[in-house]
Every structure is written in C-alpha cells, then in structure tokens.
Simulated scan of single mutants.
Amino acid sequence: MAAQNQNIVNGMSADGLDGAVWRKSSHSGYNGNCVEVAALADGAVAVRNSRDPHGPALVYTRAEMVAFVAGVKDGEFDGMI
C-alpha cells in the first residue's frame, strides 16, 4: 500500500505519527492484549500493538480498513481465533 502522505510509511515508529489519537477496543484485557487504531489526517488508519506503543505502526487506506472490517463482521476470520 502506498501511503498518501510521503512521510508516513508502513512499519514506522508509532511515535512518528504526530497528533494520532490511539483507541483500543473496550474488549481488550487489562494486560494490553489488543491492537490500537488511529485515524490519520489524510483519511488513512494506523494500527499498532498496544503492548509496544512506541514500536512500529502499519498504515492502511480507508478502503482497506472498510474491506477488513466488513470481513470481520461477516465472520471471514472466525477460524483464526
């Protein structure tokens, strides 16, 4: 995926996403066993591991996230957990 903003690349430090407001599911456990997401100014969505908030973040387009969430809602990934 080519990031819209040339300063944002997949696998970059989550610290480099200035202004990102990270959110995680209310279903995540107390020990940080969840991923966090942040909406970016250009419409993309960043994803990071909540156990490593300063580690790498992956950046997806809005269309990619819409397709993924639709697949989750349809049960396409149920066999993975």
Rank of each mutant, 00 (worst) to 15 (best):
M1A: 11
A2G: 04
A2I: 14
A3M: 13
A3N: 11
A3V: 07
Q4T: 15
Q4R: 14
N5F: 07
N5D: 15
Q6E: 14
Q6S: 15
Q6D: 13
Q6R: 05
N7P: 15
G11C: 09
G11S: 05
G11T: 09
G11V: 14
G11F: 04
M12Y: 02
S13N: 05
A14S: 12
A14M: 05
D15N: 14
D15S: 15
G16D: 13
L17D: 01
L17G: 05
D18T: 15
D18V: 15
D18M: 08
A20V: 12
V21W: 00
W22R: 09
W22N: 04
W22I: 07
W22P: 15
K24T: 13
S26H: 10
S26P: 15
S26I: 14
S26L: 10
H27G: 04
H27A: 11
S28W: 05
S28N: 06
G29L: 03
G29K: 07
Y30R: 13
Y30C: 07
N31Q: 09
G32C: 12
G32P: 13
N33I: 13
C34R: 02
C34E: 00
C34F: 02
V35G: 07
V35N: 00
V35H: 01
E36A: 10
V37D: 00
A38H: 12
L40F: 03
L40V: 04
L40K: 03
L40E: 00
A41Y: 02
D42R: 07
D42G: 09
A44D: 05
V45C: 01
A46T: 03
V47L: 12
R48Q: 02
N49F: 11
S50I: 07
S50D: 12
R51V: 05
R51W: 08
D52F: 14
D52E: 11
D52K: 12
D52R: 15
D52G: 08
P53A: 01
P53W: 00
P53E: 06
H54G: 15
H54L: 14
P56R: 06
A57K: 02
V59D: 00
Y60W: 12
Y60E: 00
T61D: 11
R62Y: 04
R62G: 05
R62E: 02
A63N: 09
E64A: 10
E64C: 02
M65R: 08
M65C: 05
A67K: 14
F68D: 00
F68E: 00
F68R: 05
F68Q: 01
V69T: 09
V69C: 03
A70F: 02
A70D: 11
A70T: 03
G71H: 02
G71S: 03
V72G: 04
V72I: 13
K73D: 05
F77G: 11
F77M: 04
F77H: 12
F77R: 00
I81A: 08
I81Y: 08
I81V: 11
